[in-house]
Amino acid sequence: MTNIFTPEKTAELSAQIDRQLQELKTPPYSPTKLPETPPGFPVKQSQAIEEVTKEKPERFLHKFGRAAKSDLCEEGGLLNSQWKKWGDLNNQDVVDKFGVLLVMMGFSGAALEILVVAIAVTVIHIGIKAFCEDYSQ
């Protein structure tokens, strides 16, 4: 597997994913929606996706979902297999896989790091099954 990030950066981004997921579980999380943000989408991550991509989060996630489909949504994909086995994903694998896909989509530098974390948190938060049903077509 191609690694976009150094092991240290991967660990840092993985820790950010864990912190943001914990924030979503800890009261007083307020699931206030942004205009045109689908129900269940985490607000902080939706804002980050929109700021970096200049697109509505839902629209960008459709593009990303199509790119991630083979790893995330299809039988035999690394992340799909992890989810089916454990009901969870290894953050470091998510960072690596999503990082490669986002580089192929043209992102780099700080924008890449922000997007990797925001998309990972969003996908894990809404669940792979829901994400794949709604965003990988």
Rank of each mutant, 00 (worst) to 15 (best):
V121I: 00
K129S: 11
I126L: 10
L72G: 02
Y135W: 03
R66I: 11
K129V: 09
T26I: 05
S70D: 05
K97Y: 07
K44S: 10
E51M: 11
T2K: 06
Q45N: 13
K44P: 03
L21D: 03
P28L: 00
P28I: 07
L21K: 05
P57Y: 09
K69L: 07
L78Y: 10
V94I: 14
F5H: 05
T2W: 07
L101V: 07
M105N: 01
W86H: 12
S108K: 14
I124C: 03
T32N: 11
F41G: 06
E23D: 14
S14M: 09
C73M: 06
L72S: 05
L24K: 03
A68P: 01
K63F: 06
E74V: 08
Q47L: 06
P31H: 06
Q47E: 12
I49K: 01
L79D: 04
K56N: 14
I4V: 14
S81Q: 15
W83F: 13
I4C: 05
P35M: 15
C132R: 13
E8S: 09
K85A: 10
T32W: 08
L102H: 04
W86G: 00
A11F: 00
G40V: 08
V95C: 11
R59P: 00
L72K: 02
G65A: 04
F41Y: 15
K9N: 08
D71T: 07
E75A: 13
S70V: 08
A130N: 09
K56G: 04
K9P: 08
P57S: 09
S81K: 12
L102C: 02
V94H: 05
L61P: 15
E51W: 03
K9M: 12
D134S: 13
V94A: 15
E113P: 01
I4G: 12
L24G: 07
V103P: 02
N90H: 11
P35Y: 14
L24W: 06
R19V: 08
C73N: 01
W86S: 09
Y29L: 07
Q82M: 08
I114Q: 04
T6K: 12
V123C: 08
A15F: 00
N90R: 10
T26H: 11
P42F: 05
P38G: 02
S46I: 01
S30N: 09
Q137L: 13
G65S: 02
Q16N: 14
Q22K: 05
K9T: 11
G99D: 12
L101K: 13
A68M: 13
Y135A: 02
S70G: 03
W86Q: 02
G40R: 04
K85C: 08
T53K: 08
M1I: 09
E12S: 15
Q137M: 13
V121P: 00
P39K: 14
I4Q: 08
L115Q: 01
Q47F: 07
F98L: 01
P31M: 11
Q45S: 09
N3Y: 12
W83R: 08
K25W: 04
R19K: 15
N90C: 04
Q47H: 06
H62G: 07
Q16T: 03
Q45Y: 02
K9A: 12
